Amino acid sequence: MAAIHPTAIVDPKAELDASVEVGPYSVIGPHVVIGAGTKVGPHVVIEGHTTIGRDNHFFQFSSIGAQPQDKKWAGEPTRLEIGDRNTIREFCTFNTGTVQDKGVTRLGNDNWISAYVHLAHDCQVGNNTIFSNNAQLAGHVEVGDWAILSGYAGVHQFCKIGAHAFVGMTTSLTQDVPPFVLVSGNPCSAHGVNIEGLKRRGYTRAQIDAVRAAYKTIYRQGLTLEEAKAALLAQEGQLTEGAEQVRQMREFLDSATRGIVR
């Protein structure tokens, strides 16, 4: 039997692994599935069609799987999917998706989500990200692996944030952020490459130098995006170590839908 506090309310139709812990006064809805080793603290509400993996920790007072804050939502059974080993701190709000997009909001594995973070409908968050207190995602936002959002960063709907990018404190983000790029401010602007983050993750000097050269191509040579993509393709072909990182940046420019932060 799962370790459920007697004051918690768990719907009989919910599927909880026997090792799940549910704290006092928490509420678990009928369409919720929770994997082994996950801990749900006190006063947490988990509802909707929500699937949660292994070894997650939900701290007190979070609202997980509530209906999307979207007037177009008409009661469709959209979903929220959360992976493994995530830490979700106090007062977080994660909503389900909408049928106008993917129909599912996703949070991957090994993410550190601080207090008061909001993941709106249809957001797609990768693995190993860090969201500091009060970071807020509007609907349909995509966040790549290892990205960091500082405190009070706000992201406009449909924006994309590339892998290993860094978004500074109180930033108002209305355009896409390429991989590895550090941005901040209001209005937002680019301020170089997240070099410290890449060093911590074991990137070599040659890989970091390739990323820095690609950054200069995009931001320092006065090129249009099409010209920058062509230049990056040429750089990629000349590299052995670092070619993969340049390819990531070039392909991100192809996928950007709101223009990139300049």
Rank of each mutant, 00 (worst) to 15 (best):
T174E: 05
A165C: 05
T170E: 13
T171I: 00
T174I: 13
P178C: 06
H164V: 06
F158A: 13
V143T: 06
S189T: 09
C188P: 01
H156C: 04
V167E: 02
I161V: 14
H156Q: 14
Q157P: 09
A190V: 10
A163N: 11
V183Y: 01
L173R: 06
A153D: 03
I161Y: 10
V177W: 01
T171Q: 03
D145L: 11
P187E: 10
S184Q: 09
I148S: 09
H156T: 03
V155M: 12
G185R: 05
H140Q: 08
A163L: 00
L149N: 01
I148A: 13
G185T: 05
A153S: 15
V141P: 13
V167S: 03
P179D: 04
W146L: 09
F166L: 14
F180E: 03
Y152H: 12
H140N: 12
P187I: 11
H156N: 09
F158H: 15
D176Y: 04
P179I: 07
F180K: 11
H140P: 06
V143K: 02
G151H: 02
V141D: 09
P179V: 07
C188Y: 01
F166G: 00
L173F: 06
V141E: 05
L173G: 07
E142W: 14
L149Y: 01
T170Q: 14
S189P: 00
V167A: 06
V155S: 01
N186D: 06
A163G: 01
E142K: 15
H164R: 10
H140E: 10
D176M: 07
S172E: 11
Y152Q: 14
T174L: 11
C159L: 09
T171V: 08
F158D: 13
M169N: 13
T174G: 06
T174C: 04
A163R: 15
G162I: 14
L149H: 08
L173E: 07
V183C: 09
A165F: 07
F158N: 13
A163D: 10
C188I: 04
G154N: 10
C159R: 03
Q157N: 11
Y152M: 15
P187G: 03
Q175I: 08
S184G: 08
S172P: 00
A165S: 12
L149F: 14
D145F: 03
A153M: 01
H164M: 14
Q175N: 07
P187W: 07
E142C: 13
L149D: 03
F180P: 04
N186R: 07
F166T: 07
C188K: 00
P179H: 04
A190H: 00
P178Q: 04
A153R: 01
C188N: 05
